[in-house]
Amino acid sequence: MRRRAAPLVGGVLCVTLLAGCAGLPERLGLPVMPSPVPSDVVPTDLPAPAISVGDTQLSPDGFDVVRRMAVRIRNVGCGELSTGSGFALTEYTLVTNKHVVADSAQLELSTYDGRDVDATAASTAGLADLAIVRTAEPLPTAPELATADPVEGDPVTIVGYPLGGRLTVTDGVVVGTTTDPLNTTLGEVLITDAPVEPGSSGSAALDAEGRVIGVVYAKNDSGFSFLVPVSTLRAMLDDESAFAPAPTCAG
């Protein structure tokens, strides 16, 4: 009886050894039992997907920064009316041309979306065709000023209100520099082939990164536009005595 039970005991022992002893089948070179299938294999530490919004920075209302910085200026004079452009420098300050705000009885401002903004004060630079207007309400957004003037061949984007009409964005390149043909701005000014019209005066000229590189102030018969370079703008802004209250038509 004992002799007959011996194989059975041995087999059970071997199975027990194979199945029960963890690692024994591996040491013996035998296939091992598979691990249980997880209930979920979705990783939890996935990196957030990069959402592409195109080349422009979007705002809550979908307008890009280039348009949101623009301001339309209505110069209500004594028996005269003219329009110009400007752009936000800070939340309550905008930059435009001296000749846009000069000889006014009242300045009326509006943003890209037609919102009216009250002007509280205007001051003009003595040595450049530049002016600063303070506002009572905040402006939508303000661009960054470039640290250096552009060079010939650099792309330029101009945003403003040509002929007092719709907000328009035009492109071109810097074609060179010259002394101011109107003798209103000290030093050299920039020449671009970006199309502008009367009413574009005070428009921001931007580089490819959306930084201000100049302020439109004139055009010639050949279709070239002239910019007050950002270096001059910076120099004027750094000099508190450079600006004086803007002359009004009332004297």
């Binding site: 041995g10 087999g11 199975v15 194979l18 199945a19 089948p25 035998l30 296939p31």
Partner: peptide
């Protein structure tokens, strides 16, 4: 034979 049977049984289980 027992070992072989056990091995066979184990392999079938695996």
């Amino acid at each position: 034979l027992g070992a072989g049977g056990a091995l066979t049984w184990y392999l079938l289980e695996v």
